[in-house]
Design a binder for these strands. Sequence first.
DNA 1: TCTTTATGTAGTCGGTGTAAACATTATCTA
DNA 2: TAGATAATGTTTACACCGACTACATAAAGA
Lengths: 195, 195
Amino acid sequence: MSGPYHHGNLRNALIERAIEVMDKEGLEKLSLRGLARDLNVSHAAPLRHFANKADLLREIAQAGVERLIEASKSAGDLKPGLDRLRQTMNGYVLWATENAAYHHILRNPDVMRHASDDLKSSVDKFASMQWEDITAAQLSGWRPDEDPRLLYLHLISLTAGTAIVLTDPMYRAVLGRELDVVDIKGSIGIFLDAA
Amino acid sequence: MSGPYHHGNLRNALIERAIEVMDKEGLEKLSLRGLARDLNVSHAAPLRHFANKADLLREIAQAGVERLIEASKSAGDLKPGLDRLRQTMNGYVLWATENAAYHHILRNPDVMRHASDDLKSSVDKFASMQWEDITAAQLSGWRPDEDPRLLYLHLISLTAGTAIVLTDPMYRAVLGRELDVVDIKGSIGIFLDAA
DNA sequence: TCTTTATGTAGTCGGTGTAAACATTATCTA
DNA sequence: TAGATAATGTTTACACCGACTACATAAAGA
């Protein structure tokens, strides 16, 4: 055909194209052979870089969680407490809306079903960062009498739910109009600033 | 092979088995040919009842939303107001945990991507039931100064998020222990009963 | 009864994942 | 720098899948 025998950067090209396809057409339309076609390599070339399809998705998910963790770190620059909790919760939701492709991959049950131990431990790390933020806010005097486990369940449900609602096409249709950053912070803040 | 020429109830058998497979092994392992094998019919028999794979999933999702709507109706037996809102929010989350298979199908992007107009309008109906419950609670004096659209975003995010967190294996691993009905109501109630 | 319709079967086509054998190029080392 | 070795890409092959067509059988209705 055309081009050199070696692609040069096939591994990264596969990842980038896979994210694009996942975002635009969903997991069902993502195929290793399709990626190979798009990148003008033979249909088996991707298997030189990823043992199988699940392995490719695992790697993308892993990168996604790591990006999410980084984003959370840079979003939460205040000292532990309620303000920082507000920052990180809004940061999560904003990251999800701005990185909807990664977010959808991380939320896809057929991707996370095959999570590796590495991926699981990254998820755990993010979860404990959330736990730290929440308990720190409580220690600083916010809702001191609340059962911290229930508070945790409540807050991760709220953040995950908000991110999902805002990036899910069906929910977006229901919401009826575009919501901007102020709206999002307003929605999260309804609880944080209550009482 | 064995058995009569006609299965007798293939349509329902396909739906039941499909829900089972989706729940245990996920969309990726669900195949029309696999269902046919499980039910001892020829590989093309399912196509007599569903035009294609997406059609089968659409029908299951449709049934799921209708069950959800029914469950919500019977859960909310109080007159409109905050108590009823509490009922329906808890009802949604409990339904999701007790019907995790349906819930996962309804949350699968590759299923909902092919939603029919009927399915979309069922989803809309459920959404407007939620809207009614929320605005009615507000009209009865609860948080009268809140922007109803933000309140709506907040509450559907919280309910959807709680349902997802409680039925997602990865989140369940993070939560660390079994949570019972009281915990769920406690988590939802943290906001409803605040202030 | 016999005609129509519903349901199931068999065969086929193109698409997909993935494994094995082979080809080419890049990299390392003696 | 030459030759060995590893990395990367190709070809071939197989099993599985969705979906279409032609055909077979059974059920329902006239």
